[in-house]
C-alpha cells in the first residue's frame, strides 16, 4: 500500500513537471566559453518558458567534468525590466546519459530578450550572451470552434454512413 501511495504521488507530481513542450528553438550553437562549447535551446513561450543549456567540452576538459553551477539571466532588450537570474538544473533521465541544464523562466510578454548563460567554475564565471524572442503560447479561444468544426462534420458524416451500413454482410 505504501509503495502504491508513493507511485501515485510520483505520477501526480510528474504530471506537474514541465518538459520541453514542443520543438525547442535553437538560440545559439557551439559558442566556445572557457572549457565548454555552449548550445542554448529555448521554449520561449509567454508565461512559463524554459531554456536548456547543452555543454560539450572543447577538448581541454574531460567529458565528466561539469561546472559547479549553471545559471541563466534574462532581461528585455529594451531594459524595461531588471535582469533576473534563474538556476539551471542538471537533468538526467533514468538510466540514460543525456545530461543538459534546464531552467524554467517566466516571460511576461512577446518581446526581444537578452540572455546570458553563466557557467560557474572554481570561483570563475564564464559568460555567453545571446538574444531571443518570445512567442505567445495560447491559442485564441475563438479558434477552437474553427478547429472543432471539421472534426464534428467528419464525425456526423461517419455516423450517417455507418447507420446506412446495417452491418449485414454483402452477399456475393
Amino acid at each position: 500500500m505504501r509503495h502504491l501511495f508513493s507511485l501515485f504521488s510520483l505520477l501526480t507530481l510528474c504530471a506537474l513537471a514541465h518538459a520541453h513542450n514542443g520543438l525547442p528553438t535553437l538560440v545559439l550553437q557551439n559558442k566556445v566559453s572557457g572549457p565548454y562549447k555552449v548550445t542554448l535551446w529555448a521554449d520561449p513561450h509567454v508565461g512559463q518558458g524554459n531554456l536548456s543549456v547543452v555543454l560539450t567540452p572543447t577538448g581541454q576538459t574531460p567529458p565528466d567534468q561539469a561546472p559547479d553551477k549553471v545559471e541563466v539571466a534574462v532581461q528585455p532588450t529594451s531594459k524595461r525590466l531588471d535582469e533576473k537570474i534563474y538556476p539551471a538544473k542538471l537533468k538526467f533521465k533514468f538510466q540514460r546519459q543525456y545530461p543538459y541544464y534546464y531552467a524554467e523562466v517566466p516571460f511576461d510578454k512577446v518581446d526581444s530578450w537578452d540572455v546570458r548563460v553563466l557557467l560557474h567554475n572554481q570561483q570563475k564565471v564564464d559568460v555567453v550572451t545571446a538574444q531571443m524572442g518570445t512567442k505567445a503560447d495560447n491559442l485564441n479561444p475563438w479558434f477552437l470552434p474553427l478547429y472543432a468544426l471539421p472534426f464534428a462534420v467528419i464525425g456526423l458524416i461517419w455516423i450517417r454512413a455507418a447507420r446506412k451500413k446495417t452491418g449485414s454482410p454483402t452477399e456475393i
Binding site: 513542450n21 514542443g22 528553438t25 512567442k135 491559442l139 461517419w158
Partner: peptide, 24 residues
Amino acid sequence: WSFGGIPVMLVKPLEWGFLALGVL
C-alpha cells in the same frame, strides 16, 4: 537549423480532434 515546424499550440487541438474521432 532554425527550421522547425508548426507551433505546438496549433497542433494540440488536432490531437484532441483525432482522439475524439477515434473514440467515436
